[in-house]
Design a protein around this nucleic acid. Sequence first.
DNA 1: ATATTGTATACGGTATACAAAATATATGCA
DNA 2: TGCATATATTTTGTATACCGTATACAATAT
Lengths: 267, 267
Amino acid sequence: MAMHYLECIAISFGKPNTNCENSSYNEEINLNSISFNKLLFSKEISEMNILSANELTTLAYRKVKEMILSDELKPGQKIVQDKLALDLGISRTPLRSALQILEAEHLVQSIPRRGVIVRKISDQKIVEIYDCRIALECMAVRNFIEIATEKQILKFQKFFKNFDTEKPFDSKTYQEEDIKFHNYIIENCGNEFLTRLFQQGNLVLCISQIGLIRPPSETLLEHRAIIQAIGDRDIPKAVALAEDHLEKSKFLVMEKIERESLRKQNG
Amino acid sequence: MAMHYLECIAISFGKPNTNCENSSYNEEINLNSISFNKLLFSKEISEMNILSANELTTLAYRKVKEMILSDELKPGQKIVQDKLALDLGISRTPLRSALQILEAEHLVQSIPRRGVIVRKISDQKIVEIYDCRIALECMAVRNFIEIATEKQILKFQKFFKNFDTEKPFDSKTYQEEDIKFHNYIIENCGNEFLTRLFQQGNLVLCISQIGLIRPPSETLLEHRAIIQAIGDRDIPKAVALAEDHLEKSKFLVMEKIERESLRKQNG
DNA sequence: ATATTGTATACGGTATACAAAATATATGCA
DNA sequence: TGCATATATTTTGTATACCGTATACAATAT
């Protein structure tokens, strides 16, 4: 049963005289018309070079994702495709494509013949995500130290330079820096698959959605300590610090769950 | 700028008198008409309760995924949507939806206005996936031992019961058992997010695609040792064994990369 | 007053139609 | 014959139409 589409091997891709010559097809696309939420969509974390540029699909994907992560579309809320498509100025087809992707990312749930609703990221899920991050980021720190060039280390040491415990700073900017900091390690540890896994599962973004878990005064010192240990290429110390850093935030979320569980019991 | 679709909160879901009463919407759907590749699509690993039952989309998703993982659709090959849709007996719309999902899973790459091609999973990627699996599965083993009930342990100890080093056995069946074994730990360690991450990233399936890396005679003993250690609830030992088990396979793939790299240099 | 059934409407899922783009083919010219 | 340009064909991406199902609401029965 030889299927006839098996014959259509792609041999002519990347030919000269196309607008894709000599470039990776993973290149990102720019849709300047959309104004991004800087925090949630900082270049490092979600230019989503995973995705291709089905222009309107990409537009819808980004916009809807932004709406979900910024709580403009609320958990449990049903997304009425006609209305949302109208609002975005596109037809339902690309919107539905975008929703398929968001469903694969688990940000949205499709119920057959009912529609698509926004998923809720429970605190329990946040704890679970933290456990995954701890496992993966510790691995990333280890590998990063092993393979990082001096140049990479130097660039890494620039993180949080502009933040000072003395004078107050914008917490949104701080959170953005936090995201970039963690992503830098992930993206430079020599494991491309890891980067993709983080993007696919929104491991960083999902947690960021609930805002800062601990005050910068606390985490800034930890970040600095991690930077120091990595600069010294002290693997055991860096891994321990990174683990502790995430573990502490996770613990706070666990405490919150505990508190709310007790409150429920006591009425 | 209050958007009008914000008002359409889904409140009436799960009403009685519908055919969805009292049931989770995550329930799986059965499309008996499709014959699955048992190995690649064993119930445990990919009934994909993540996905909703857009019936034809789901059908296309499964079928195309199976075709990719079984090498019926080969890496680099272009998927001509018209032809494939015709072959599957559906229109391009649900096929395209399926391809969107597969792209999010990175099994396929979409190039704007050119088409969709099947991605190649390089040996280098396999190594990267192994690193992620080592980090995550060690965490899973630890948590599984901590929370597993006696019943779960007992069920777990049944794995590989029917395999004997003395008499030969079907390697496909063995690989299937291997997949189930690893998935059992992942799915019972109390971290639902982890399960999803494995499904989303195809962490187990991608590696299985290249077939058995080491002979069962070797891995069977390791599997048994892990089972033993978990049965004893010996966390350090179990984690060490699990890590070693994966690390050994990873090492073989790394050696293969090395060999091929040398062969290339020497012509 | 409450429950039940029937009907209207809204909405989701799929197929199809159409336009834009890319690839393949043909034509003309050196 | 070989290359450049023009034309035809294929194929993708988007919009829209259609159909079936789910929900809402009203009318009727209990």
